[in-house]
Design a protein around this nucleic acid. Structure first.
Length: 298
DNA sequence: AATGCGGGGGC
DNA sequence: GCCCCAGCATT
């Protein structure tokens, strides 16, 4: 790396962090009274669910289950109902399993090493890094969809990152992460926030960007996305996932086990509905009683 | 490397 | 309608 490149990286980091000092959102999982558990819960909820939808659910969740031990003891049906419409309800199951593992393996304390965090259900590379940085202020390389986009633009000069996360991106993010714990944690939060508020996927607000003058994508004339058109968005209408969602919504609403005849009214294709229900049972999101009625697990 | 997995909002 | 959102687990 040349001296010029090193200087530029320093300028990018300091610019983004200074911007963050003024522009950071006032999110509850960043408040001084937050707990590592609260941070972990926020990260699980934020896996593919936008901040605005997570915030009220997070507040209610932490009020009801303020510690891992509280969630570990809760009826799973209550957990799934509290998850509500956040989407991907398997995350709620994993979060409760995670709480149980924290109680059993770590005395109820959210672990503070990458290996221990990664060993917990529902926690992958991103979430482990995020908990280390945001709950414990430790250096870790935090790369979410926001950071990927910021680095793609500012450093790589492309409109958007490739569809899947590459080793090259990880290496770049690692090289850009400051050495010190506090500095690295600050950079992680700041780079994510820039992606969420300014360096957005559509219509980025380059006029408000602290590093617009350093941005490789801007310097290249803001070329369009090379992968445009090949980013097949997942189908929704008519899919098994939609059918599963319908069933789960009904099971959350119901106070008694639900007869399959009633569920049949939720979906036009009986075979697909059966498949969806079988999948939910397989995933542990629903259970069948002796009378073949469906209910949330207890 | 590619899939399956929810749901809602912005444009 | 299309695209995106603080991803993970499985194959």
């Amino acid at each position: 790396m040349t001296v010029r490149e090193a200087t530029r990286r320093t300028e990018v980091r300091s610019g983004v962090v200074r911007w963050f000092d003024d522009s950071a959102r006032d999110l509850p999982w960043r408040a001084p009274d937050r707990t590592p558990w609260g941070v972990l819960v926020s990260e699980i909820m934020l896996q593919q669910t936008p901040v605005v939808r997570v915030e009220p659910a997070w507040r209610a969740w932490l009020e009801q289950w303020p510690t891992p031990a509280d969630l570990a003891q809760a009826p799973t049906a209550d957990v799934l109902r509290a998850w509500g419409r956040l989407g991907y309800p398997r995350r709620a199951l994993r979060l409760q399993e995670c709480a149980k593992a924290i109680v059993e393996r770590h005395d109820g304390v959210v672990p503070r090493t990458d290996a221990q965090l990664r060993a917990l259900p529902g926690i992958g590379e991103y979430t482990a890094a995020a908990v280390l940085a945001f709950a414990y202020g430790k250096r870790s390389v935090v790369v979410d969809t926001n950071v990927r986009r910021v680095l793609a633009r500012v450093v790589a000069g492309t409109a958007l990152p490739a569809p899947s996360y590459t080793a090259a991106e990880r290496a770049l993010a690692t090289a850009l992460t400051p050495d010190g714990d506090a500095e690295a944690a600050r950079w992680a939060a700041a780079s994510m926030e820039l992606g969420a508020l300014v360096c957005t996927a559509k219509a980025p607000k380059c006029g408000a960007c602290p590093v617009a003058g350093l941005c490789a994508w801007r310097s290249a004339g803001s070329p369009p996305d090379a992968h445009a058109g090949r980013r097949r968005t997942q189908a929704w209408a008519g899919t098994d996932r939609q059918a599963r969602g319908r069933v789960m919504a009904e099971l959350r609403r119901a106070t008694e086990p639900v007869d399959r005849a009633l569920l049949a009214r939720l979906w036009h294709d009986p075979r697909q509905l059966d498949r969806a229900i079988a999948g939910l049972v397989e995933d542990g999101l629903a259970e069948q009683d002796d009378a073949n009625r469906l209910h949330l697990p207890n």
